[in-house]
Design a binder for these strands. Structure first.
Lengths: 338, 338
DNA sequence: CTGAAAGCGCTTACAG
DNA sequence: CTGAAAGCGCTTACAG
């Protein structure tokens, strides 16, 4: 039972409105002497304004909701999430908003929408939702402010995504310019928009360079180290092996490194590896990983900024972020197999 | 302007109480026919119960606050935080609580306490606070429910920590049993409780084995890859080099690997490396890192569970988690330098 | 059985 | 200048 304005008012024989004005320093002025007494007894009683009550009258909560539609368990351990989330959190701090993470997974999109729209946050940020996200339609219907990171968006709400196509295109060009012709791709789960875009872009780039796309060199790596490991083990035990592999994210690359290590395959001399994301693990791998940087943190920050802009009546535009190939030590010329 | 109970009641010419009972399915019964009409118009108007209002009358918010006292910026990118946070989030989902992350850093402990105690959460979980945390005293005074992960605690509130001493002791024993005598330690920032405990434990273990502790082999690695890299560069360029190094966390070990790679020092043959935490990067390093596992996720989960127990009137006890040495490939016998 | 009313802790327009 | 009152959107004890 924390102290309330009523307690202070009662103790001082003044009205709660006066107490309120004194505590908030306005908008009505309060005589200095009264104000001081209010402040003193507030301190004495350990009074702290109740933000729930304040939110109710203000009609806003000063908090942003983050909704990771895709993953539910072990979410905070996925690098992709971590970086975008970090961007949101850093920016939210600057904007003086707090961040509520919605973790409850509901099979029913209606129930999920109910939870997201229950008034606890002023706006929502969706992280890399599945391509088919019925929740988004629900939220859209309710006209609640939201933005989306990395997804194709039907409506007009702001969407922040990386140029996956460009990234993959540049990566394949890089490999081709080194002399690679035999290039494999380990893709992510094809229910995810990013995975699909990168996969498409890979195929297009290969065709563009008139290189053969072998079905058995197109494997699912699930965006995880284990997926990458499994795929790479298959790839590396083929009699007819690729000289390079484009991984749909760095986590997959991590698994490829392990597989190569276990099978005694040298990176980059026997296998060139390209990742995607440039997250922390890319910095840990040795030789250092050549990868496509996706500015996830900026994207997270931009999405937080956009939501707040919308709350202030603005209409922030979609934004596509350029990717950047970071050439490090995991790619080199293929060995001649003549 | 979302629909409210009042809107439904007005439209149906019934009282808000009836509407409320119909929506909530109790505690008072409502005739089936009326109930159906309420539900129908609720759907029609897109009505969703306002949780802020509900929280205000219930006096609880069903959300848990996570407070990372130590770090403010780039928080969500620190593995330590990620894993403990993941534990909290997973458990919170099971308990049907949401998680609010407090990110605002206030120099003034009173202001911070005001924010933490403003009624938005039912309980607080503090992450690895600095040894000297004035905020904790403020929260304690207010008798607000809170628990702490990894810190020495003055009061009686539940505290969940790993047995750092045991971990380091076992690690040193492991190295000694392999024949190492020349052992270095790269410690964390000594304002942090964990760093101090591990540092102390290292010194004690060395003394216990009657091994010489060289001052120049005791370096600060700041719990970061860069810190570890810098420290290891110094260590490895000494004429008189250690044969093994105990890193205060895995991130430091990551930097040590890089330094060794750059300087052409082979791990483990020329340098044995032990980490602490067993986080994701430990799985990425090759050769695979021998490390001390600290069950951060369990600790996070336990803390969430404890808070909820407290909210239900319980009094959960302190809990110290055992650590476990995971021997992998980064430690071996030292080469004879005779 | 159901409606009107009080109250959660605030803010702020309205009276005096 | 300050107090009483209404209202934010709910829940629930109290009347009828």
């Amino acid at each position: 039972m924390p102290a309330t304005l009523k307690d202070i008012a009662a103790k001082l024989n003044i009205s709660v409105s006066t107490a309120s004005y004194a505590i908030n320093g306005g908008p009505r002025s309060v005589p200095a002497e009264v104000k001081q007494r209010v402040l003193d007894t507030a301190r004495e009683l350990g009074y702290r304004p109740n933000r729930i009550a304040r939110s109710l009258v203000a009609g806003k909560t000063m908090t942003l909701g983050v909704v990771p539609v895709q993953i539910t368990i072990d979410l905070a351990v996925v690098p992709y999430f971590q970086e975008a989330f970090n961007g949101v959190v850093n920016e939210a701090e600057l904007l003086e908003y707090d961040v509520l993470l919605f973790t409850r997974a509901f099979a029913d999109p209606d129930r999920l929408a109910d939870v997201l729209l229950d008034g606890r946050v002023d706006g929502l940020i969706f992280f890399a939702p599945n391509i088919d996200s019925p929740v988004l339609s629900r939220i859209r219907e309710s006209r609640f402010p939201f933005v989306v990171i990395n997804n194709q968006i039907e409506g007009t709400e702001p969407c922040f995504s990386a140029d996956n196509r460009q990234g993959i295109t540049v990566a394949v060009e890089h490999l081709v310019s080194l002399g690679h012709k035999r290039i494999a791709h380990i893709h992510g789960p094809l229910e995810m928009f990013d995975a699909v875009e990168r996969h498409h872009a890979f195929l297009e780039a290969m065709v563009g360079h008139r290189l053969e796309v072998r079905k058995e060199w197109l494997l699912d790596g699930q965006f995880t180290p284990m997926g990458g490991h499994t795929a790479a083990c298959r790839l590396l035990s083929m009699a007819d092996r690729p000289t390079a592999v484009v991984c749909a994210n760095d986590e997959i690359a991590t698994g490829v490194y392990r597989a190569a290590w276990e099978m005694g395959v040298q990176i980059p001399t026997e296998l060139s590896v390209v990742g995607f994301d440039n997250n922390a693990s890319a910095q840990v791998l040795l030789p250092r990983l050549t990868t496509i940087r996706q500015p996830l943190e900026e994207m997270g920050a931009a999405s937080a900024k956009a939501i707040v802009e919308m709350l202030n009546g603005g209409k922030p535009p979609h934004q596509q972020f350029q990717t950047e190939l970071i050439v490090r030590e995991s790619t080199t010329r293929p060995v001649e197999v003549s």
